[in-house]
Design a binder for these strands. Structure first.
Lengths: 233, 233
DNA sequence: GTATATTTGTGTTTTAGAACATAGTTCTAT
DNA sequence: ATAGAACTATGTTCTAAAACACAAATATAC
């Protein structure tokens, strides 16, 4: 992970959640230590086995957190949207990363040294509680994900992923097209299926008038139906 | 969750991790608020959708945390061993429980009101960091579990579960028999497979001299082999 | 201690989804 | 602008594991 270009950005507005909790002194220290780094589309932000050093906050762009599984088959564990924090779990657990992070598209990331964050939160219970909440929510999602990915069928898993993408990145101006440009392979590794199955099931959804496709752009036509398919499994 | 019998137990030795971090005043408050509750074998400790109220520390016995999935098919999410904390995630996330907890066998559980824990940790960064670490480790395990359960085959998943049970609950005096008495159905829902498949694969392992079975007692004969099967998937 | 329910074990059938093959299409880099 | 690479699409085959069925063995309740 190489340091990129440094920017002048208003941290107070971009790091809102954490900023609000800090004392004035802490803010000043943080302002001097935080670095803004750019990543190009498909650029790796960190790798499995890397030693975690920074708390990252995604300012702009989209990031995937993924893991290579049995036989190198990779799986997307979660996707990050602007203003979300990531990359801190492994440091807190005193582990190296067990996941990797890659930019789906051009990204701006704020990097804050983890030692600083740990020092702050050991003396600031409210900041600590902020992280406890983040981790608790994510752990709940992970537990739910285990059941969804192992028990739902292909259609249910894909429907769920489409809804999750809509939830994370929203819709374009037409109020229907999911605001992300994703390869079928990524959609597959997010839904735990082969690329063929993602393509096939996507066409089925098109035939059933649940969605419409234009290249990589996916338009949700019948969201209710999608919810139902996701729920039924 | 009904209150059971109250015991006199030396909290300072049983709640070691948290106890060590607290101040004297906090310890006194905790001593007055903590309650010891017994659960019989197969008794429910909390249910999905319940509102979380207590941090629980398992003193003696064995507990399973599970989740009912698609079509009521239940899945064991994690198993708790003595001296482990559980039941706190949902409270921190401001959610109701998304899992349920049941005693595998007769249990003693220490219950501490979560409001108290939250008050303590907001003023005690080290206690807060203790929970941050617990959550971070569990989140890492959950991420790994997603990949293991979705990508490994039946043999790999069962081998992994057997090793996890040994890791959690240890071996009996013979240094080979896993120290837990588990129905095939539980073994299946821990390994994400049908009961038939758990039984069948277990017999295969017996035929291959990897394990030996005596009713529900499982003796590990060739642990190296088990590790290899788990790794290969 | 006996009856009933639950768990275990095994064989057979069925099926969802992986694996493979191949062709057309769209990116991307020079 | 064009060559090569990567992605998308679709048909076919194959297989792991679920579903089902039933018998035998245990456990649990009365």
């Amino acid at each position: 992970m190489a340091a990129k270009k440094k920017d002048v950005i208003d941290l107070s507005s971009s790091l809102l959640d954490i900023w609000r909790i800090l004392t004035d002194t802490e803010r000043e220290v943080l302002r001097r230590s935080a670095r803004i780094v750019h990543f190009k589309k498909n650029e790796l932000i960190y790798l499995e086995e890397d030693t975690p050093k920074f708390l990252m906050c995604l300012f702009t762009g989209k990031v995937k957190i993924f893991k290579s599984g049995v036989g190198g088959r990779s799986q997307i564990i979660r996707i990050i949207r602007p203003m979300q924090y990531f990359g801190y779990r492994a440091y807190f657990a005193r582990e190296n990363y067990v996941t990797a992070a890659m930019a789906f598209e051009s990204c701006t990331v704020c990097m804050i040294p983890m030692e600083l964050i740990e020092k702050f939160l050991r003396g600031n219970g409210n900041l600590a509680f902020f992280f406890i909440q983040l981790l608790s929510v994510d752990l709940g999602i992970a537990d739910q994900r285990v059941v969804n990915l192992t028990q739902k069928h292909v259609r249910g898993r894909l429907a769920e992923s489409l809804l999750a993408l809509k939830e994370s990145y929203g819709l374009e101006e037409d109020g229907a097209t999911i605001n992300i440009y994703l390869a079928r392979e990524d959609l597959a590794s997010l839904s735990n299926m082969t690329t063929s199955n993602a393509i096939r099931t996507l066409s089925n959804f098109v035939n059933e008038r649940i969605i419409a496709i234009d290249g990589r752009k996916i338009k949700i036509i019948d969201e209710e139906r999608l919810h139902k398919i996701s729920r039924m499994g």
